[in-house]
Design a protein around this nucleic acid. Structure first.
Length: 875
DNA sequence: TTTATCACG
DNA sequence: ACGTACGTGATAAAA
């Protein structure tokens, strides 16, 4: 048998050490993690180097110890544990348990005493002992058998105290460390010692006399000095201090060495804890493997037919797709569960099954799903109209915390402690190795997903109710999912020949520009490569470097604009960039997305993605089609109604974000401006520059507009100065003037940041949340970013709430009025419809009406609209 | 896969 | 002194 090696860790001391040594980190839900992280890296390193056979982490129990009986002031005056640290102890304990390391604490005793007692026992049994702590007091325990490791800054840097190391460092024996502390005291433990005696004096005295006791026996022989007086005066205190500093090695602990066997970590559990704490680098670096299916058994059937009795009134159902492109991909199969019976049916077997179709279309049959919009859209392709969805896991978890990524059901389930479902990557592989597994494997995977949804439904709904977000989830996001699904399936008609014609013209212009650029540069190069372009501009042509990126020179548009007067080539490059962007993204890119069967693009609105509650749009992104510059705007001529004699009808909120700000801040001036129906930027210019309406110049209005944008973004003088190309000082003055004119806005900004600090999150009008863990960061950048986010998110998010509500109301109104008009797109503050000409008149009335009253604010909402034969003409 | 750039609100 | 405007997605180049 190999020799036993015992590793004893001082839990409290190490946690404290790590907490103060490392910057404040947090996981996705805002729990601080730096102490646990530091502890983990230290632990990993020591485990690897020492390979102990027995382990224990000792903790201090409670506030009072036996030391307080002799000295009430022991550890007095200590700052109480910061909350950012105390919240980490439960996770630390969880981590230690996952490693399968024993932990122990004992009333009235400190971790030191537990460690000392066990070290002594182990030594008498001839074991090697290693003690790890952040506290040098422990070095008194060092012997030939016992080595004390003290962490230095960074946690993985360790100083090893053997008796000889201590001798070398202090010229003392380990036991004399106690005497040293008795004489010099310890401020952190509030041990007094002898005033005026520090480390140097203590060591000198101990080298001469050996110990505190010996010193006082011979003190009469000491020659008269200030120090002697002090020593005599404080004899009792010195002796008591020594006692306090002595680690008690005979604590009555009810744990023995046999209990401390260390079997190694439960790797899966450790990974779970790491995942919970977002220790991504550790997860990636570690060679820990998830255990092969440690998951609970799930009984399921693979069926080829479904009879009505199998389909209950309430079920979780999961539609398993090939990939995320649900408008084009295949369905692999469906999993069903009612919590007792689980079954899987392949797509081939279900596609013509009337029983399933009827059940899916039956509003009264309650379905629990995950990403019901995807299911709805893909089922729509085989003429099934999904109804009766009452729970959607992706949406529900997004509302609880929008930061939690929802691309894999397994990841989502893990967030709620449910791990009996595999990651897609495990089942299918990834990248080029992606493949559909055997039916048995696939069926189990899909059934497990359905079961996970079933199991999590009550948990997540409870959480939503606890946070008062159930209404937002159930009555806004859930019905919106269905509306979005219909919009996506409907699609937008694109005139490919229009795009191709534009592409041809662009091609000409681009190659002409290319020629000019090569000519002026004196050589051919790839203009699309910022690296090559940088070399040409800043080395060959010697233009001044305005800004650098981390990899080289910046050639971004704002930089080039400043360089226009320096060289003719710059303008050509700017033009080239603009046209190349149109060509690659909006002509070629868009054409690739047009479905050949219906000449339409079918975007996917991501409903559970953004941090603020906005939607996003992909494949293609229809929320960033050019409009600001005329050349780009022409792209919109290719977007047309799907039917002859129809038009595209666009309605947008005017200044919705500033109106939301007026509502939330209740700033009298801002509210008044909107009630008066004034041009808000002009009004801002009047207030900031103290001029009358007639005297507002175009430039003043431009500056005011930029300030208004800045306010919405969570203003900073630097950001505004960049935007307006003025000095920081000037920008700062603008901001000050603005805040003086709108004092309610300033109060709101201060209040919202305070609120974020207090709660850890900010909320929107409909109680959408965003957590801001960095708001308490000691890192200036992170904290500033979080503060700006705290100011911006309630504004952007509430605007998102409003338009989402408007979409639901609009959908209902169109149905109620029995119109053919279809809602096609949402672009953050505007809605785009296609409509038969005859319905235009009605739309002109009802669209603004519905949108303006989606949510009542302290200021009116204003909607502008227009229509035309193409999206371009709807202006 | 990451970086720089640029399109939108 | 710190170094930024808020929120997205697509493309091409470079690694």
């Amino acid at each position: 048998m190999t020799k036993e090696k015992l590793l004893l860790l001082d839990g409290n001391s190490l946690a404290y050490r790590a907490f103060f040594a490392l910057p404040l980190l947090t996981n996705d839900s805002g729990v601080h993690t730096n102490a646990v992280y530091g502890f983990t890296t230290m632990l990993q390193k020591i485990l690897e180097e020492e390979k102990p056979t027995k382990m224990l982490v000792a903790f201090d129990a409670g506030k009072t110890t036996f030391r307080h009986e002799s000295y009430g002031e022991y550890k007095g005056g200590r700052q109480k544990t910061p909350p950012e640290l105390s919240e980490q102890f439960p996770y630390l304990r969880k981590l230690i348990d996952a490693y399968q390391i024993k932990r122990y604490e004992k009333e009235l005793y400190e971790a030191d005493d537990i460690i000392g007692t066990l070290a002594k026992q182990a030594e008498s049994e001839n074991m090697d002992v290693i003690i790890v702590s952040g506290d040098k007091d422990l070095t008194q325990l060092a012997t030939d058998k016992v080595t004390v490791y003290i962490t230095r800054k960074g946690m993985t840097d360790i100083e090893k105290y053997t008796p000889s190391h201590i001798e070398e460092k202090y010229g003392l024996s380990p036991l004399q460390i106690i005497d040293m502390k008795g004489l010099m005291g310890d401020t952190s433990d509030n041990i007094p010692g002898v005033p005026g005696v520090g480390e140097k004096t203590a060591i000198k005295l101990l080298k001469e006399y050996g110990s505190v006791e010996a010193l006082y026996e011979q003190i009469d022989d000491m020659k008269k000095s200030k120090m002697k007086e002090k020593l005599v005066e404080n004899e009792e205190q010195a002796k008591m201090s020594k006692k306090l500093a002595t680690i008690f090695t005979e604590a009555p602990i009810d744990i023995s060495l046999e209990d401390l066997n260390y079997p190694g970590p439960n790797e899966e559990e450790v990974l779970n804890v790491w995942q919970e704490l977002s220790f991504k680098s550790l997860i990636e670096k570690s060679d820990f493997q998830m255990e092969e299916k440690e998951t609970a058994e799930l009984v399921f059937d693979i069926v080829t037919d479904v009879t009505p009795d199998m389909l209950k009134d309430v079920m979780a159902v999961h539609v398993e797709l090939e990939n995320e492109h649900y408008h084009t991909c295949r369905i692999l199969g469906l999993g069903f569960t009612d919590g007792t019976k689980n079954f899987y049916i392949s797509f081939e077997d279900m596609k013509n099954n009337e029983t399933i179709k009827n059940w899916l279309e039956d509003e009264s049959k309650i379905k629990y799903m995950s990403d019901s919009k995807a299911a709805q859209a893909i089922l729509n392709r085989i003429n099934i109209e999904l109804r009766g969805v009452d729970f959607d896991l992706v949406l529900a978890t997004y509302i609880v915390n929008p930061a939690v990524s929802g691309d894999d059901l397994a990841t989502l389930a893990k967030e709620y402690g449910y791990s009996d479902v595999q990651a897609n990557e495990t089942i299918y592989g990834k990248g080029a190795k992606w493949t559909v597994p055997a039916m048995e494997v696939l069926a189990e995977h899909v059934c497990r997903k359905a079961f996970a949804i079933w199991s999590l439904q009550p948990v997540v709904e409870e959480k939503l109710k606890e946070n008062e977000q159930f209404d937002l989830y159930h009555n806004l996001e859930l019905p919106l999912a269905s509306i979005l699904g219909i919009m996506e399936s409907e699609g937008v008609k694109v005139n490919i020949s229009t795009l191709e014609k534009m592409g041809g013209e662009l091609e000409q212009k681009i190659s002409a520009l290319e020629k000019e650029i090569y000519e002026l540069a004196g050589e051919k190069f790839n203009i699309n490569s910022p690296k090559q372009l940088g070399v040409i501009l800043f080395e060959k042509l010697g233009l001044p470097v305005v800004k650098k990126t981390k990899t080289g020179y910046s050639t971004a548009a704002d930089v080039l604009e400043k360089l226009q007067s320096e060289h003719k080539i710059v303008k050509y490059i700017l033009d080239y960039r603009q046209l190349a962007k149109l060509q690659s993204t909006y002509i070629e890119g868009l054409i690739k997305e047009v479905h050949s069967d219906d000449s339409k693009v079918h975007t996917r609105f991501q409903q559970a993605l953004t941090a603020t509650g906005r939607l996003s749009s992909t494949d293609p992104n229809l929320q960033n089609i050019p409009i600001r510059l005329e050349e780009g705007r022409k792209i919109r001529q290719a977007f047309v109604p799907s039917k002859e004699g129809w038009v595209l009808f666009a309605a947008d909120y005017s200044q919705i974000e500033l109106r939301v700000l007026a509502h939330m801040s209740k700033d009298e001036n801002l509210v008044d401006a909107f009630i008066q129906g004034m041009d808000i930027h002009t009004r801002t210019a009047m207030d900031v520059f103290h001029v009358s309406e007639e005297d507002v110049t175009a430039n003043m209005r431009r500056a005011a507009k930029a300030v208004n944008f800045g306010i919405v973004y969570g203003i900073s003088d630097y950001g505004l100065s960049q935007n307006l190309d003025i000095t920081r000082k000037e920008a700062g003055e603008f901001i000050d003037k603005y805040l003086q004119s709108f004092p309610g806005v300033k109060e709101y900004m201060d209040r919202i940041v305070q609120e974020a600090k207090l709660n850890g999150f900010v909320t929107t009008i409909l109680n959408r949340r965003r957590y801001l863990p960095d708001i308490t960061s000691r890192n200036f950048n992170l904290r500033s970013f979080a503060e700006r986010t705290a100011m911006n998110t309630p504004i952007q998010g509430s605007a998102a709430d409003i338009i989402k509500k408007a979409m639901i109301d609009m959908d209902a109104r169109l149905k109620q009025e029995g119109l053919q008009t279809k809602m096609l797109l949402q672009v953050h503050d505007e809605l785009i419809f296609e409509a038969p000409k005859e319905e235009i008149e009605i739309l002109e009335r009802i669209v603004p009406e519905v949108m303006e009253h989606a949510i009542e604010l302290a200021v009116p909402l204003k909607v502008d609209f227009s229509y035309g034969h193409t999206w371009y003409d709807a202006k």
